[in-house]
Design a binder for these strands. Structure first.
Lengths: 145, 145
DNA sequence: GTGATTGCAAATCTTTTGCACTAAA
DNA sequence: TTTAGTGCAAAAGATTTGCAATCAC
C-alpha cells in the first residue's frame, strides 16, 4: 500500500533529471507535497505555508522558482482565473476547471466531460498550445440548503 | 454617418444612469474612448495612456474605478488570461478568445464559432455565471513566412 | 448644501531580481 | 573545484485605499 505513491514520485525524479534540475532538498520536499497527495491546486503562498507547517525550510522566492521550473518541465500547469494570483495544478491529464467566484475554489473537470464540438480556424502562422475552458460559478442565490 | 455611433453611446448613458452612476466628465470621456471604436480589449494602463493622448485628464485610480464600475454595470467584461494583468473587453456579445502567448494579443472569437457539445453537471447549490473558452496560441516555430 | 466622485500619494499584494552564500556533481 | 541553487532583502508591477478637494444634483 505504501507503494501506491512510489511510482509516480519516481517519475517526478526522472523528469527533474531530464529537465536538468538538480534534485535538491527544497525541490524534493516541494515535489512530495505537490505530487503525493492527489490532484491539487496551489498558489505559491499556500505551498510555502504548507512547507512551513511540515517544518521544511524554503524561502518564498524558491517556491516561486520551483513552481515555474516544474511548470516549464511539464510537471505542473499554471491556471489563471483571478487577476493577481496564479494557481498551479498538479493534474496533468486533459481537463478543464470550475471556478467558484464566491469562494475562490478551483475544481477539476475531467476532459471527458467537456467536448468542444466546433472550433474556429486558427490564425495563419500560429499554433494552438492549449484550450482552456473555465466554467465560472457562484453560490445559488436561494440561501440555505 | 456621424450618427453611426450615436445610438449605442446613448444606451451607454442610459446604463450608467440605471446603474446609479453619475455621468461625470471622466466617466463620459472614458466611455467614449471605450465604446465608440468598435470591440476592444484594454488594460487600465492602456486606457489611461489613451486618455492622456486625447488630452483627457483622469487619474489612473479613476480609470481603475471606472473600469470596475462599468464591469459591474454590465458594460464591460473582465478577461483574465495572464497573471498580474486584467483586460477589459467591450464586446458584450456571447464570444470567446484567442490569446497569443507570444505577443499578449487578445482576439475575439464569435460565440457561433465555438460550440460546447457536452458540459459537466454543475455542483449542487451553484449556478453558472459564465463559460470562458480561451484558445492559447504561439507563433508557429517555422520562422519566416 | 449634500452626498457622490475624483486625484494624489501612500499602502498593499503578488511576483521578480540581485547577489553573497551553500550545496550538488 | 565548478556551477547550479538558495535565501534574503530590495525592487518591481498592478491594483487598492484614505482622505481632502471638487463636482453633480
Amino acid at each position: 500500500m505504501a507503494m501506491l505513491h512510489t511510482r509516480p514520485f519516481a517519475s517526478v525524479l526522472d523528469q527533474l533529471k531530464s529537465a536538468g534540475l538538480r534534485p535538491t532538498r527544497q525541490r524534493l520536499a516541494l515535489a512530495k507535497l505537490l505530487f503525493e497527495g492527489g490532484d491539487r491546486h496551489v498558489t505559491a503562498e499556500l505551498l510555502h505555508a504548507e512547507a512551513e507547517a511540515h517544518r521544511i525550510r524554503v524561502s518564498l522566492a524558491t517556491v516561486y522558482n520551483t513552481l515555474h521550473q516544474f511548470t516549464a518541465a511539464g510537471l505542473l500547469r499554471e491556471v489563471v482565473v483571478e487577476p493577481g494570483r496564479s494557481y498551479f495544478d498538479t493534474n496533468r491529464h486533459d481537463h478543464h476547471h470550475f471556478f467558484n467566484e464566491t469562494s475562490g475554489e478551483l475544481t477539476d473537470i475531467p476532459g471527458t466531460e467537456v467536448t468542444l464540438a466546433r472550433l474556429p480556424a486558427v490564425p495563419e502562422g500560429r499554433r494552438v498550445t492549449r484550450v482552456d475552458v473555465v466554467i465560472r460559478l457562484a453560490d445559488e442565490p436561494g440561501a440555505g440548503r
